[in-house]
């Protein structure tokens, strides 16, 4: 495992891929890694949560104005949340996984 963030990946280092313990042992294995970059992890989690909470907070956006090029607030706000989701997950990706490769994980 070349990446620093094994906590979200399947395999913890040092465990043979086929052993049944790899599933069981991973909760313990991932803790030190999680502790290593707590700030980045917390920021990423929060970033992803914001657009989700906002797009489910219906009373917040259930109104007509202000309109954007004639589109009521209700409609354009939810579409803006989709863009915000892309920004949030994109930032989380850059913060946590930028150096990853598919091969390292699929090995």
């Amino acid at each position: 495992m070349t990446s620093h963030h094994a906590f979200l990946l399947a395999r913890a280092p040092g465990i043979p891929p086929d052993s049944k313990e790899s599933m069981m042992g991973e909760t313990r294995e991932r803790l030190p890694v999680r502790a290593a970059r707590p700030l980045r992890l917390a920021v990423s989690g929060l970033l992803i949560l914001i657009p989700v909470v906002l797009s489910l907070a219906v009373p917040l956006y259930q109104r007509s104005g202000p309109a954007l090029i004639g589109i009521p607030f209700f409609y354009w706000f939810q579409m803006a949340m989709a863009i915000l989701t892309a920004i949030a997950t994109g930032t989380a990706y850059q913060l946590l996984y930028a150096g990853d490769t598919d091969e390292a994980e699929a090995a």
């Binding site: 949560l49 657009p51 989700v52 797009s55 939810q78 949340m81 989701t85 892309a86 949030a88 997950t89």
Partner: peptide
């Protein structure tokens, strides 16, 4: 639309 936000997150 909010359904899609939830599913991607």
């Amino acid at each position: 639309i909010p359904n899609a936000v939830v599913l991607y997150a």
